[in-house]
C-alpha cells in the first residue's frame, strides 16, 4: 500500500521543533543514558592502560610503568576509570534479560533472576581471578 497525496496537496507548513540542546537533562533516564555513553571513554582508557601494562611486561620495562602508575593523577584517573567500568558493566548486565528470553517448561524466567544470575557469575569470575593473581604473587 502506498499513500496518495496528489501534487498541489502540500499542507501549510508543519511545525518542526528545533533541537533542544539540553534534551538529556529533561528526564532522569536520559541523563543516565548520556552518562553511560560517556563512561565508554573511560572504559576505552582502561583497555589502553591494560595494553600499556602488557607491553611493559613484554619488553621488561615494568619498573618505569610502575613509577608512572604510582603518580597521584594516574591513580585518580584509574579510580575514576574503575568506577566507570563498573557502572558500565552493571548496566550492561542489567540489559541481559532483554536480550535473552529464557523459558523453562513454558514458564518465563523473570528478569531479576537473570540479572541476579549474571551479577553472581561476574562476582564469581572476579573472585577466581583475584585468587589466581594474588596467589602467584
Amino acid at each position: 500500500m502506498t499513500t496518495a497525496r496528489p501534487p498541489g496537496h502540500e499542507e501549510a507548513r508543519p511545525y518542526v521543533r528545533p533541537r533542544d540542546r539540553w534534551w538529556f537533562a529533561r528526564r532522569r533516564s536520559l541523563a543516565v543514558f548520556v552518562l553511560r555513553e560517556l563512561t565508554s571513554v573511560l572504559v576505552a582508557w582502561t583497555v589502553a592502560y591494560l595494553l600499556l601494562l602488557l607491553g611493559a611486561v613484554a619488553d621488561g620495562t615494568t619498573e618505569r610503568f610502575a613509577a608512572l602508575a604510582a603518580r597521584p593523577w594516574m591513580v585518580a584517573l584509574n579510580v575514576l576509570a574503575l568506577a566507570a567500568t563498573a557502572f558500565h558493566a552493571v548496566t550492561f548486565l542489567n540489559l541481559a534479560p532483554k536480550a535473552t528470553v529464557v523459558r523453562l517448561d513454558g514458564w518465563r524466567v523473570p528478569a531479576w533472576m537473570i540479572q541476579g544470575g549474571n551479577h553472581t557469575a561476574w562476582l564469581a569470575v572476579s573472585a577466581l581471578l583475584a585468587y589466581l593473581v594474588l596467589r602467584s604473587s
Partner: peptide, 23 residues
C-alpha cells in the same frame, strides 16, 4: 539503539520494544 529503555517504560500495551531490539 543505545538502550535507554524509555520505549518500554512508556508503552501502554507492555510490548517491551526494548527487549525486541536487544534480542
Amino acid at each position: 539503539c543505545t538502550f535507554v529503555g524509555d520505549c518500554t517504560r512508556v508503552c501502554p500495551k507492555h510490548v517491551d520494544p526494548a527487549e525486541a531490539i536487544q534480542r
